[in-house]
């Protein structure tokens, strides 16, 4: 099976000479359709750099990144921007919604930028909002919504237009425990429905929703987990 996201030997160096900082050192990383992968690590371990490079917001110093088979390095600025609008959904800790636009308008924006008609974009936006469980809030402005509702809007914006790669950077960071859990259920459901998800988090409880957990330290993958089972408990659940 071809991965939706594939990073091969990716290195990212910031600065030059004596001030050089290696944010990533030859990382290879994949996320397949239907898979949610969590990336954990302390501040400075390179996890956010990994996500921005995967999303085409930053370029690797060496190595390649491909999304659905397309090498991001081979695209010009416009091509990458288009890729970000059509294939990649981003969810941030701070929601990043436009306050002057309603929920539906926020969600429809990437589609409208993509050139489809406003009417069609709004229709897709409403479907996406329904999918994340807040169809009835389509005409609200972000300021009139709770943090959890705003993050749902952001997720709807990330999934609109059949985008198959969802990149989430601490999406639960600004939310309380229960609401955070709901957001993860949503991401999980999205991946179960066929998307590939990458979740950057420092919360083990949230990373546990992933199929695989990748541990980063100093720009290197030091470990990976996700295969073993706790037998007793799975047997219980199977009954």
């Amino acid at each position: 099976m071809n991965p939706i996201l594939e990073l091969t030997d990716v290195t990212r160096v910031h600065g030059e000479g004596a001030n050089q900082v290696h944010a990533l050192r030859g990382i290879s990383f994949t996320a397949h359709a239907g898979e949610l992968v969590a990336v954990m690590g302390p501040s400075g371990s390179g996890k956010s750099t990994l996500l921005t490079i995967a999303g085409g917001l930053d370029q690797p110093t060496a190595g390649t990144v491909s999304v659905e088979g397309t090498h991001l390095g081979g695209l010009d600025l416009q091509g990458r921007a288009r890729m970000r609008r059509t294939s990649i959904g981003y969810v941030f800790q701070g929601f990043n919604l436009i306050p002057a636009l309603t929920a539906a308008e926020n969600v429809a924006l990437p589609r409208e930028l993509d050139g489809i008609s406003a009417r069609a974009a709004r229709k897709e936006a409403r479907t996406a909002l329904d999918e994340v469980g807040i169809g009835e809030l389509a005409d609200r402005f972000p300021d009139d919504m709770s943090g959890g509702q705003q993050q749902r809007v952001a997720i709807a914006r990330a999934i609109i237009g059949e985008r198959r790669l969802i990149l989430a950077d601490e999406p639960t960071g600004a939310l309380d425990t229960e609401t955070g859990e709901e957001i993860l259920q949503l991401l999980r459901a999205r991946c179960d429905a066929g998307a590939a998800g990458v979740l950057v988090t420092h919360e083990a409880r949230h990373a546990a929703w992933a199929d695989r957990v990748v541990f980063l330290r100093d720009g290197v993958v030091v470990d990976e987990t996700g295969a073993d089972r706790v037998d007793v408990l799975t047997e219980h659940a199977a009954r």
Binding site: W209, V213, V230, L233
Partner: peptide, 18 residues
């Protein structure tokens, strides 16, 4: 950490069903 994380993933999987 990996072993505990794997257990945590299992508990979470069970939670989704329960």
């Amino acid at each position: 950490r990996s072993a505990t994380m794997a257990a945590l993933q299992d508990y979470t999987r069970l939670k989704r069903r329960a």
